[in-house]
Design a binder for these strands. Structure first.
Lengths: 250, 250
DNA sequence: TTATATTTTTAGGCTAGGCTAAACCATTTG
DNA sequence: CAAATGGTTTAGCCTAGCCTAAAAATATAA
């Protein structure tokens, strides 16, 4: 059997074997971590992901990650070299996008059709994403009118897995004092953070002004309330800058 | 540890440990098989179920069933004695009803909210029933107006797991020639049978007349069509008898 | 009531996906 | 450039659920 010359023979067939829930989750996290906070982009723009990071995200020991990466590598879903980290292959990227599409469509559906709060949808979608059929995906996508974003402001890959157009946003922590903007994305999966953001009215679409950065975090104005957000939170709030600074009030 | 006098000490606590999908499925099937075609009734009216029957239903070898029954027995969810078959305990019965409630609410929701055909809902509900939260259950129940029956005519246990009132129906195979009635329940999970019934318009609510029983099965009138249903199908079609025979036409 | 047939259980294996402890590599530090 | 440090992998174990083959119990027939 030696001698398959050529560049990328790999196990393309295996990509058709139905994957386990765990496998899908690993692929999804490789994509998310590799996209590093930014929206999530083309496969080429993706970074190499470390065993450790994956272990943290999956709530699992690094040794377990190694084991899984070997399997996924044999399936041709990731490029993995010991001690060097991991990246998705084209096949793995497709799977990850599909899972992410399920997840985000579910979030949108739970929010819009069943009245879940936007901060509540993540957990439920996380469980369901692996168990819905393509028919289900299609029907909720249709019901929703084929949305491009979920309730957190994350983009939803299209039915053919194309990525929606994204506008360039900046983290709240990167705004300059006085700048106005609209919350475009709340990029955390931590339930406590989500609850806090929801409580403060900091959801996608909300208009805000960054007052100033201080040692403890960022001071921000939302409606007529002013809050101090610790840096960790200011890092996950993505803002679409609006008009420039010092506008017509005060 | 000897000497817990009293009748039913058992492992009540374990019933609180979250069960695996497989465990839930076994419990559900013990209930369904123990209810033998009839609607599904009180725990007391339930029959003992054999290892073999369970194996057939679960698409699994009898040896595997034995293994699982031992575990469920230790958890206090079934009463199991080697070679004598199995029955649910009160705790197991509750779990089974809960799973069934999920299943049937999902079927109703998929049908009414997402436009699935009534014959298509079973498979999707089968996968999802183990993965929805109580919040999800509640929201779809509410959306549906707390229905008492699913699209196949099966009763849906209430939020407190009470059983809805059931009216006494008879199998099509048990009707007498000339009797009229309404399809009340299509009691099969076989996809081909479901498709056939759907194709013939034999869904819950349909008005029918039994013409006669012949060697090959039962001849039945639906609208202005007449069909011959093999006995196996006539056994799973439950009818609510309407007016008596020979009414005002022909 | 003994013999045969059927059902059920036991024994021993396998895979997936976790874990721990120990070995290994790479990178940083002295 | 050697040594210490910390992330990574290997080796070996464990549990859930399934399997097959063989043994045991029950049910049926003679």
């Amino acid at each position: 059997m030696g001698g398959q010359r050529g560049v990328e023979p790999v196990n393309e067939l295996a990509a058709r074997t139905p994957l386990s829930e765990a496998q899908e989750d690993y692929l999804k996290q490789v994509l998310l971590l590799g996209s590093g906070g930014e929206g999530m982009g083309k496969l080429e723009d993706t970074l190499v992901v470390s065993t450790q990071d994956l272990a943290d995200r999956m709530q699992v020991k690094p040794a377990s990650v190694t084991g899984m990466l070997k399997k996924l590598s044999e399936l041709g879903l990731v490029d993995y070299e010991a001690y060097r980290g991991v990246r998705l292959t084209v096949a793995g990227y497709k799977v990850a996008l599909e899972v992410l599409r399920h997840h985000r469509l579910l979030e949108a559906y739970l929010h819009q059709a069943l009245g879940y709060g936007w901060e509540e949808v993540h957990a439920e979608a996380e469980k369901l994403e692996h168990h819905i059929s393509e028919a289900f995906e299609q029907r909720i996508a249709e019901w929703l009118g084929h949305p491009s974003h979920d309730p957190h402001g994350d983009t939803i890959p299209g039915a053919n897995l194309e990525l929606p157009q994204t506008t360039p946003n900046r983290r709240l922590a990167a705004l300059k004092g006085g700048e106005y903007g609209m919350v475009a994305r709340v990029a955390t999966q931590d339930q406590d953070s989500l609850n806090l953001f929801a409580h403060l009215g900091l959801k996608p679409g909300a208009q805000i002004q960054l007052l100033e950065h201080v040692a403890e975090g960022s001071r921000v104005q939302v409606g007529r309330e002013r809050y101090l957000l610790p840096l960790s939170l200011a890092q996950v709030l993505w803002i679409r800058p609006k008009g420039d600074c010092h506008v017509d009030h005060e």
